[in-house]
């Protein structure tokens, strides 16, 4: 046992303070971290064109509002007073449901990040994409909204994938047999992203259905259709692509598409599992006299 010399008070105080600091940091960190972990993700938020995937977007967006400013002050803003614009920065309290539930409103947009609500103001798809260009951090990436023309990178808003329009067949009045092509005409990619499909209406026997059908591979998710929809709560609306679309998995290959078929190239082919049973031909199996008593 060490001799009971004078206690080094500074040393003791240092340890006490440090441990107290760790205690407080653990408590505060749990609450703080818990809040941020919850608040950083909103499943139904629609981001500006060129936004990187949401998880990466949250890391990269510095919440500066340069995209919002660019959107508001662009020359072709339909609101000439420039008081409103498509993009807005999420402020605390924005998550309260708006529009009396008459359209989709994101619930918990992470603070300070840009989003838009198409039923209020859709994206007008400016060809110069001022919002994406303005982003200083790469959260909005011009590469995602550019195509290559004559070996040069040119902005191409049609490549934007902000979301995808979905038609509610139950409440779309065109599917009732009424004549309405509001969404079709509002679509900036008319006859590409939304096509009208002609069908006979068996109810009346003498009329046609003109059914709007969305082509998700072309749809940009701008939401002009959602704004145009005549029903009280829009029967066509934009959802984030990850919510609205399925995924088939990599193992499906479209043999009829050259590009897709290219994916098989260099593949070793299908590996066969060989067992004593698989060496027999199917006919052998079928020709066994008693199927139940095989072997």
């Amino acid at each position: 046992m060490a001799d009971k010399g004078p206690v080094d008070k500074d040393r003791r105080k240092f340890f006490i303070r440090t441990l107290q600091g760790f205690g407080l940091a653990a408590l505060g960190g749990t609450i703080w971290g818990g809040y941020v972990a919850e608040a950083k993700y909103d499943e139904i938020v629609l981001r500006p064109p060129g936004a990187v995937p949401e998880e990466e977007f949250i890391k990269k967006c510095i919440k500066c509002g340069l995209c919002v400013e660019a959107c508001k002050n662009r020359d072709n803003n339909p609101d000439e007073t420039k008081q409103t614009a498509t993009l807005r920065l999420a402020a605390p309290g924005d998550h309260r449901p708006r529009g009396n539930g008459k359209y989709i409103y994101p619930k918990e947009v992470p603070l300070g990040t840009p989003y838009f609500v198409p039923r209020e103001i859709p994206c007008y798809m400016c060809e110069d994409i001022p919002c994406t260009v303005a982003c200083p951090t790469g959260a909005l990436d011009t590469d995602l909204v550019s195509s290559v023309k004559d070996g040069k990178k040119v902005l191409d808003i049609n490549k934007a994938r902000m979301g995808v329009a979905v038609v509610d067949l139950e409440h779309c009045i065109a599917y009732w047999g009424l004549q309405c092509d509001a969404c079709y005409r509002a679509c900036p990619l008319i006859d590409e992203a939304i096509k009208l499909e002609l069908k006979r209406n068996p109810r009346t026997g003498k009329h046609a259905f003109l059914l709007p059908v969305v082509y998700p591979d072309v749809c940009t998710g701008c939401g002009l259709c959602e704004l145009a929809c005549v029903t009280e709560k829009p029967a066509i609306f934009v959802l984030p692509r990850h919510l609205a679309l399925g995924e088939v998995g990599k193992h499906y290959i479209k043999g009829w598409e050259k590009k897709d078929e290219g994916r098989i190239k260099g593949s070793k082919g299908v590996e066969k599992t060989i067992t004593p049973r698989s060496e027999k031909k199917p006919e052998d199996y079928l020709n066994v006299e008693d199927l139940l008593d095989e072997e």
């Binding site: 703080w32 971290g33 941020v36 608040a39 950083k40 949250i58 402020a91 300070g112």
Partner: peptide, 18 residues
Amino acid sequence: LIAAPAFEFISPISMLHR
């Protein structure tokens, strides 16, 4: 840990200025 800028989510300075 959370893969998001933590203080930026609660910063009263940003909330005020923004």
